Computed example of a mutant assay.
Amino acid sequence: MKAYVFPGQGAQFSGMGKSLYDLSPMAKQLFHQADEVLGYSLSKVMFEGSDEELKQTRITQPAIFAHSAITYLVATDIEQPTAVAGHSLGEFSALVAAGALDFPSALRLVAERAEAMQEATDATEGTMAAVLGLDDSMIEEACAAIEEVVVPANYNTNGQLVISGSVAGVEKASKILTDLGARRVVALPVGGAFHSPLMQPAQDRLKAAIEEARFRPPACEIYQNVDAQPSTDPDQIKEKLIAQLTSPVRWTQTVANMQAAGLTDFVEVGGKGKILAGLIRKVDRALNVEQLG
């Protein structure tokens, strides 16, 4: 049984998708479709843009989605997945792989998500920090005791949890967690408090777009970030996708639950740096992770 997993922000790189475009007529068609849907040449930015250009949220999210989704869609020797999952933004690519959303519909939602998150970020300054080497429960308790906004945002793997919130909240939590014995607390170079209550305006904006989109029953289970549980009902998938922006990404729990369901072979689609492969292996070294694209 094989699971396909899709990375989120951080998987971008200059030149992404260019080899796909050059080698596959189907990929070329999908990139042109993406440009038409968005009303600008995403493919040109992906193929020729600088690292700085690709770091802009409005560009980053559609670019990563397009790269992962197209990589999956044009693969000729793909094995039908038993399940799929995506890390944050990657959940949209996973939905395409599972057949719950078609490519242009998912891209429109990703573009709306990116704009909404950028707008929320511009309105309220926030930040994130990675906490290494501390039990999740200690981090949860420390965040809950702070008056400023700061919450667990990404349960990435055993011993790595990202916190998110106001600048003051994250700074205060970082000091407390260092005092509690965290091996390291690393400030992340992001401009927003993703997966925190500060993303509520973005969630409100995205909700209308998701509710209007046509979701189909997926061909396989999709493990979603909000609760790390498998979903197959389109209405339930929508509800969880809406809640995702202000809820933590439960990636550690997702991998553990997939493993408990008998999934031991994973294929990471897209991420050049094998971002998810490293996280999955840290959950359990026995898990096999391959790379596609």
Rank of each mutant, 00 (worst) to 15 (best):
P81Y: 04
T71S: 12
S93R: 04
I275H: 07
H87F: 10
P81I: 01
E147N: 12
A116H: 10
L276A: 04
T254K: 15
E36W: 01
K272N: 11
G133L: 08
Q224G: 04
D235Y: 05
Y4W: 06
R216E: 08
D102M: 10
E115C: 09
Q80V: 12
G271E: 00
G192Y: 01
A261E: 10
E290G: 09
F266C: 09
H195R: 04
A3L: 07
T121Q: 11
K274D: 07
V84C: 13
G90Y: 00
A173C: 11
G126P: 15
A213T: 12
I237C: 03
P104S: 04
M199W: 01
D284I: 09
T157A: 13
K240A: 05
D51T: 13
E268W: 10
L20M: 15
A168L: 09
W251L: 11
S93L: 07
M16T: 05
N158L: 10
A3S: 12
Y40T: 02
H87L: 08
A114I: 12
S24T: 06
A94T: 03
V37K: 08
V226F: 02
E79Q: 13
A243H: 06
A202H: 06
G271H: 04
E212N: 15
E239K: 13
N225C: 10
H195G: 02
L241F: 00
G39E: 03
W251C: 07
I78Y: 05
L54H: 14
I70Q: 00
F13T: 07
Y21F: 11
Q229D: 00
S68I: 01
V255D: 02
D235R: 11
E147F: 01
Q236E: 07
N154M: 08
P218S: 02
I64S: 04
C220S: 03
P234E: 01
R250M: 14
D227E: 03
V249H: 07
L134S: 02
M128A: 09
A106S: 15
V45E: 00
Y72M: 01
F65I: 03
A193W: 04
A116R: 06
F266Q: 01
K28L: 00
G159Q: 12
S88Y: 05
E212T: 11
A173K: 10
F92E: 00
I280A: 07
Q160C: 08
L245G: 03
R285G: 06
A277N: 05
E53N: 15
A193Q: 11
L287N: 14
R184M: 08
A98R: 06
T254R: 13
N288G: 11
V185D: 06
